[in-house]
């Protein structure tokens, strides 16, 4: 897409009125272009005024939110800096990990996401952690896009794959990308190892698709959307290959066999944390 074509999309993008693939192209471009960022900020200001309607929040909503917060509270204090260790692996048979308890693989329990504190609180500890992360990433192999695997076979959720995925989570060098959907129930993790080997791990319920459809995983690379592979109609743990220049991941439901570009609404999406 040319710069002019991207510019033309900015108004519709500010109103959330572009197709998912177009949104990804815009999001890829924005960090590189101050002019488009400024234009989008202006459009968003207008959208903010249009949407600023009044009204009262329904009774009981806060209580429901508050209940969810207590579920999310960490069981132990988390260090206030970004770090790779965001997940704990236990050998228990925890709830909600897809397949009906027959798996020997460890249960992977997502802990609360580590967060960056506001600038004032970012001290040397944070810088050191960030540096360590950068050093770790320098060793990540960047494979050629041409060798990008575009048609990895559908997941065969064998114990072997589940075990490898669990090992990847336990590997201190992994990075994880959280993918979330509209109802916040749908969610998944992409656990990425330094060599580009990655594992899709379904961490929330994903609706099983009809037999003639499959979930397909996509990534944004330099303004283009590439297929990373098919996840099957009811994915649990699926091995995939990724590269460090992928800035956003998303999943759509597609006809069996996959497509060359996304043709339906995004089911879950997520971006790697900024360094």
């Amino acid at each position: 897409m040319t710069h002019t074509e991207i510019e033309e999309l900015l108004g519709a993008y500010a109103l959330d009125a572009v197709e998912p693939a177009e949104a990804l192209v815009v999001e890829e471009h924005l960090p590189l272009c101050p002019r488009c960022r400024a234009e989008l900020a202006a459009h968003r200001e207008v959208a903010g005024l249009l949407g600023n309607a009044g009204g009262e929040a329904p009774a009981g909503l806060w209580d429901r939110i508050s209940d969810e917060l207590s579920l999310e509270l960490p069981s132990q204090a988390m260090p206030p800096v970004l770090g790779p260790a965001r997940f704990e692996v236990s050998d228990g048979t925890g709830p909600g990990n897809g397949a009906a308890g027959s798996r020997a693989a460890p249960f992977v329990a997502p802990m609360r996401r580590a967060r960056r504190l506001p600038a004032a609180s970012l001290v040397l500890g944070g810088l050191a952690a960030a540096l360590a992360l950068v050093v770790g990433l320098l060793s990540v192999k960047v494979s050629n896009l041409d060798t990008q695997v575009t048609d990895i076979r559908s997941a065969v959720a064998t114990n072997g794959v589940a075990q490898q995925a669990a090992l990847a989570v336990a590997n201190p060098q992994h990075r994880s990308v959280e993918l979330r959907g509209t109802g916040h129930a749908s969610r998944a993790l992409l656990v990425v190892l330094p060599d580009g080997q990655a594992y899709w791990i379904t961490t929330g319920p994903m609706r099983a698709l009809p037999a003639d459809q499959t979930y397909q995983l996509w990534a944004a690379v330099a303004g283009r959307i590439v297929s990373i592979g098919l996840l099957g109609r009811a994915p649990s743990d699926v091995p995939v290959q990724v590269t460090t220049n992928m800035t956003k991941f998303m999943v759509t439901a597609e006809p069996l066999g996959g497509t060359t570009r996304p043709t339906s609404a995004v089911v879950v999406a997520g971006s790697p944390s900024p360094l």
Partner: peptide, 23 residues
Amino acid sequence: IARYHEDALAEVYRRHAGALFGL
């Protein structure tokens, strides 16, 4: 909120939830 003060989230809710729900 970044320091896990739920009261602060409740205050943000009080100020803005009505408008968000309206939209």
